[in-house]
Simulated assay, not measured.
Amino acid sequence: MSDDNKDTAGSKEPREDGGARGRVIGTPSPARDRALLAEDDISAPAGAGEQLDEASAKRAERIVAAFFLLAFAGSVAFIAYYIGWSGRDGGMHGVTRARESNFWLGGMMALSFLALAIGVTIWVRRLMTSKPIVQERHEFAADQQTREAFTKDFLEGAEDSGITKRPLLRRTLLLAAAPLGLAPLVLLRDLGPLPEKRLRHTFWAEAVKKAQAEGKKGVRLVVDGTNRPLKVSDFSSPGGMITVLPEGIEEHVREDQVLTQTAKAVTILINIPRDQFKPAKGRENWHVNGIVAYSKICTHVGCPAALYEQTTHHILCPCHQSTFDATDAAKVVFGPAARPLPQLPLAEEDGYLVATSDYHEPIGPSFWERG
């Protein structure tokens, strides 16, 4: 090593030229002199063979128990709010209460998990002894000696953790964990009620029945948003798509059911060139000059299939890219959807487009058909 290197290695004196000295590879890191935790940090667990200071341990035990009780209170408050308060004034699923419900439910669940995590961390850091554990690889089938050794190590570990000799910690930990175990069961409420047979029929059936009782061929289609009845001449250009609903849905449906019934009945109307249209067998009369109607609800998971490619005549769902062929009974040509979009039978009456019946198969995701 040259004199220059000897002078540089490990030296803390300024260089003769006035520049700062850099650390040479192989020299001790100066970070060791600035450790974040001291060697005798009180938060560190006792080493092997060392005894815990019982007064300090009791103090830590009470702190841990307090955090466990806080976790228990947060879990109980979560369940109580979900079952009770969130059911008022439109419930937690109402538009005006959604933000409030998310804030309180998320906050209380976060408080429960955070308090539980802090309590367990303090328990491990302050009340458990630290012993080096060496584990060797052996055959999977353990012999009797190994099983006995495991039992012994397990009992020693339980004793070292303090869970057997500190009943306050054991009881408050179980108390804090119990509501957290029940919380997922409470959340199952959001998965129901099951749709059962409700998706096999939409408001189209009721509207068609009412119109036919008045001597009409069917119920008129109205443009979503304007409620204007749609004439065949208004939709005569091939390549277009529009969203329609049955006429009178807002007047003949209970106010609290309008959103649900509208979501079920929403339909897309597409004008396909006659030379490219391939009506399915038995559905030759379900269109009007190439104008066809399909449910807007994707048969994968229920997203709105609201995109249309005029050049390929494909209906696309933006959620998971399910693609349906509008010229061929909306059959699936790509993506995870398991079945075509349900088709709505159409006819013309007094120049207006009308639906002559409800959908002949359930709308929405395929798995709901099992209900």
Rank of each mutant, 00 (worst) to 15 (best):
L269Q: 03
D41F: 06
L191H: 08
A280P: 13
R283G: 07
L245I: 00
T226E: 12
T267A: 03
S112A: 14
F334Y: 14
R21M: 06
F203I: 00
Y294Q: 01
V288D: 04
T299D: 12
S236H: 08
G218I: 00
S161Y: 14
F72M: 15
F203Y: 13
W204S: 00
P318I: 04
I42P: 10
D325S: 13
F78T: 14
F140P: 11
H360T: 15
G87W: 06
L52C: 07
H201T: 12
V24S: 11
D17S: 03
S112C: 12
D160F: 13
G302E: 07
V354C: 10
M128D: 13
W204L: 02
L269C: 04
T327P: 03
A48T: 15
F277P: 00
V186G: 11
M109R: 07
G239C: 08
D190N: 11
F324I: 02
T312K: 10
F235K: 03
G18S: 10
R220I: 01
R147M: 15
A176V: 00
C319D: 09
A44V: 12
D350V: 01
A115Q: 05
G239R: 07
A338H: 15
T243V: 12
D41A: 15
I249T: 00
F140T: 10
G90T: 12
G218Y: 02
A326G: 07
G157H: 10
S112G: 05
I118K: 09
A71R: 06
P14W: 06
T356F: 02
R32P: 01
E16I: 09
I272L: 12
I63N: 01
G290S: 10
L185N: 11
T146C: 06
K278N: 14
E39F: 05
A263P: 00
V258N: 01
P179D: 02
T262I: 06
L69R: 07
K131L: 05
V258D: 06
S112R: 10
A265L: 02
A330I: 11
A149G: 13
V244A: 02
L116H: 04
K209W: 00
R32W: 12
F103N: 14
E148W: 08
P273Y: 03
G240A: 13
I315C: 09
A177L: 15
L116P: 02
N289T: 05
I118N: 07
T121F: 03
R97F: 02
R97H: 03
I118V: 15
Q261L: 06
V253T: 15
D143Q: 14
V124E: 10
S75V: 01
